[in-house]
Amino acid sequence: MRADELLLLVAGGDHRAFEELYALVSGPVYGLVRRVVRDAAQSEEVAQEVLLELWRSAARFDPGRGSALSWILTLAHRRAVDRVRSARAAGEREQREALRAGEPAFDQVAEEVEAGMEREWVRRCLRRLTDLQRQSVTLAYYDGYTYREVAERLALPLGTVKTRMRDGLTRLRECLGGAV
C-alpha cells in the first residue's frame, strides 16, 4: 500500500498500518534528519519525534494538497532544521564540528549504505545548477541555514540569495521532472 492510503488508516488508529507506514518512511525520514542534524544521537531523537508526530497528527494530512510522502518529509525537514538551529544557537555546533573534523563526512557513509537511482538523479540535477544556485539551495536545505545566514556565508545581498533559491528550485524541478 502507498503512504497516502496508509496514512488514512493510521488516522483511524490502525496500529498495523502504522507499522507498514514506518517501514515505508522511516528510511527517508531518518536519512533526511541525519543529513541536516548530522549528530547521530540527536538525529535519532528528532526522527523519533517526527515518526511519533505522524501517528498523532495523521488526521491533519490533507490529500488534496500533495502526497503523503511530501507531507511527511516536509514535516521531518522542518523539525530537523529547528533542531539544528537551536543546537547552533546553543553553541554546540562548533564543538561538534571540531569533533567531526577527523571523521568521514556523513555523505560518504550514507553512500556506502545506499546508492539509489533517485540519489544519483538529484546529484546529477544539482550539478546542473549554477554554483550560486546550488550553494544557496543546499546550504539552506541540507545544512539548515536561514537565507540571511546563506547570504552572509556567500557574501551576497539578501535579494540575490532569494532569487538564486527560487531559480535553483525551479531548475531542479525541470531537471527532475524527467526522472519520475
Binding site: Y30, R35, A47, H77, A110, E118, V122, Y141, L172
Partner: peptide, 13 residues
C-alpha cells in the same frame, strides 16, 4: 521541489 532534495538522503534508520 524542495522535497525532491530529500530523495537523495534516505538512509536506514
Amino acid at each position: 521541489d524542495a522535497v525532491r532534495l530529500a530523495w537523495s538522503t534516505a538512509a536506514p534508520a
